[in-house]
């Protein structure tokens, strides 16, 4: 079976995000970029499925300008058999990405589509369920465990009160949570080899989908920093202040 993994290029999670002086947007100039951590987990799961003999091909896809090819090369170094670059000079939002991915699903016909549960830039957590809706496939978001038996898929999901397990038939769309696995690092020989491998590329406007953004960014702000309060000397003083000053107990 074929597994399709969607990859997003985002700011490296260790980098502190700045905003532009005019508050028009965040400032990503010269920021170190990387594969979205949740996408790394999705890719790792796909590669493990292949190593277990459950998957026979792992295809990674990314949408964006030429720079996303960097993350697609990383994907190859980590074990993707093929990569697909959907070239777009303008950023696409979640619905746009889901529509593009739905076209890719039509062409590639994967048994399983794996995506990160959210990207660490927009934090929207939308593309996976949107893709499932557009392809009329079952969905399992926030996966912490995936079990495949023939065409039956069982996914344990991280929900607010604990864990929930759902069963569905393949093909399906699954989004990955943090605890699904711990992604490996790419090895140097694999990185070198990936540099020479081909990247399939197609222009976003050949897909015939509407990717007009659905929201306008008005401004960005940095939230107010919390200030340190007072030190209390004893448990008695703490209880007294919580009761009589903060009035929270």
């Amino acid at each position: 079976m074929k597994v399709l993994v969607a990859i997003k290029r985002v700011i490296d999670h260790n980098v502190r995000v700045r905003i532009r002086e005019d508050h028009s947007d965040v400032d990503l100039t010269h920021a170190k970029m990387a594969m979205n951590p949740f996408c790394e987990i999705a890719l790792e799961e796909a590669v493990r499925l292949k190593e277990q003999g459950i998957a026979d091909e792992v295809v990674a896809v990314s949408i964006g300008d030429k720079s996303v090819q960097e993350q697609l090369r990383t994907a190859m170094a980590l074990g993707a058999d093929r990569v697909l670059h959907v070239n777009s000079d303008t950023a696409v939002d979640s619905l746009g990405a889901a529509r593009v991915l739905a076209e890719v699903v039509k062409r590639e016909n994967p048994a399983l589509v794996l995506l990160g549960k959210q990207s660490i830039d927009s934090d929207s957590s939308q593309t996976g369920p949107m893709l499932a809706a557009l392809t009329q496939l079952p969905q399992a978001t926030f996966a912490s465990k995936i079990t495949i038996d023939g065409d039956r898929l069982e996914v344990t999901r991280e929900i607010d009160g604990g864990l929930e397990t759902l069963a569905m038939s393949l093909p399906a769309v699954v989004t990955t949570d943090l605890r699904l696995n711990e992604p490996r690092y790419a090895k140097l020989p694999a990185i070198m080899k990936a540099k020479k491998r081909p990247i399939e590329s197609l222009e976003i406007d050949t897909l015939g989908v509407d990717v007009t953004p659905r929201q306008a960014l008005i401004r960005v702000d940095v939230p107010r920093e919390r200030q340190a309060g007072v030190r209390v000397d004893s448990v008695d003083e703490l209880i007294d202040r919580l009761k009589n000053e903060a009035k929270v107990i």
């Binding site: 502190r16 927009s122 934090d123 401004r219 940095v222």
Partner: peptide, 9 residues
């Protein structure tokens, strides 16, 4: 956005 380090309107 960005894990709460930025607020977008």
């Amino acid at each position: 956005i960005y894990a709460g380090s930025v607020l977008a309107t």
